[in-house]
Structure formats: structure tokens, C-alpha cells
């Protein structure tokens, strides 16, 4: 054998249309896990303005003098994009939790033959919960 042909990584990713349920579940779980970590940092950053607020720091919000914690949160919550991102965060968290429970079952060897169905169930439930949450997340926000 003088030579052989390596089809390389590009072709691997080009095969995404041929991925099966379990492969998608794995990709989504990684993605959502890391999204949640990312959110954790922004969450800490926002909440830590409470330290400033406790020391009497203030800021201007809608030409009103408020403490920096209240101001930051109310300022963010008044933005439409933040509300949309919150819906996204909920979707990501719900999928991660549901699929996480699925993975725990898989690790315990329970219901392995239904692993694809439980993945689809996680997806559908995530969709339903996300849609149901939209009214709550989008109340009282000016577009």
C-alpha cells in the first residue's frame, strides 16, 4: 500500500445531516451545558452590583436616582433583547435538565432501547415549556 486517502474533518462535519438522535443529544447537551456556564458568569456580574448598592452607590435610571443594584436589574429587564435572551436561557436550561435526566437513566442502564424516544420527548417538552413561558417573560416590556 503506497498511499491512502484521508477524507479529513471537513467531511465529518459535512455529515451532520446523517447524525442520529443520540448524536444530536450529545451535541445539544454540550452546547447547553456551556451556555449555562456562560450565563453563570453574567449572572454573578449582575448580582455583584449588590455589593456596590450596600455601600451606597447609586445610578441614574429614567432620570431617577436609584441604588446601583436596582438600577442595573431594572435597566436590563426593560430591554426587549434581554427578555428574549431570558426565554432562550430557559429553553437551554430546560433542555439541559431533561436531557440530563435522560443521561442519568442511560448511565444507570434504564430504558436504553428508548433512548431516541426520550431525546425527542426532551425536545418536545422543552419546546412546550419554552412557548408557555413566553407570556411571563415578555410582560410589561416596551418594544
Amino acid at each position: 500500500m503506497s498511499q491512502s486517502y484521508n477524507r479529513g474533518l471537513i467531511e465529518d462535519f459535512g455529515r451532520w445531516k446523517e447524525f442520529s438522535a443520540g448524536m444530536w443529544a450529545w451535541i445539544f447537551h454540550k452546547f447547553t451545558g456551556w451556555m449555562l456556564i456562560g450565563y453563570l458568569f453574567t449572572h454573578i456580574a449582575v448580582l455583584s452590583t449588590a455589593i456596590g448598592a450596600a455601600q451606597g452607590e447609586t445610578m441614574m435610571l429614567a432620570s431617577e436616582q436609584v441604588d446601583v443594584y436596582t438600577g442595573t436589574i431594572q435597566g436590563l429587564e426593560s430591554l426587549f433583547i434581554i427578555r428574549v435572551l431570558e426565554v432562550g436561557l430557559l429553553a437551554v436550561a430546560v433542555f439541559h435538565i431533561l436531557n440530563g435526566l435522560r443521561l442519568l437513566m442511560v448511565d444507570l442502564g434504564i430504558g436504553l432501547t428508548a433512548q431516541d424516544k426520550s431525546f425527542y420527548a426532551s425536545l418536545i417538552l422543552t419546546g412546550v415549556i419554552t412557548v408557555a413561558s413566553v407570556p411571563t417573560f415578555l410582560t410589561g416590556v416596551g418594544l
Binding site: F19, S20, A21, G22, M23, A25, W26, L103, V106, D107, G109, L112, Q115, D116
Partner: peptide
Amino acid sequence: TQFSCTEVCPKDIPLTEHIQ
């Protein structure tokens, strides 16, 4: 646990189950 092996095995061996 992506189950791709179990899905393609022509001898229907429950590979993922055995690995788990």
C-alpha cells in the same frame, strides 16, 4: 452514549448497553 454504534451494528449487539 451517542448510541450510533448500537444503531449500525449488523448483528444487533447492544453495544452501548455493554459499555455502560
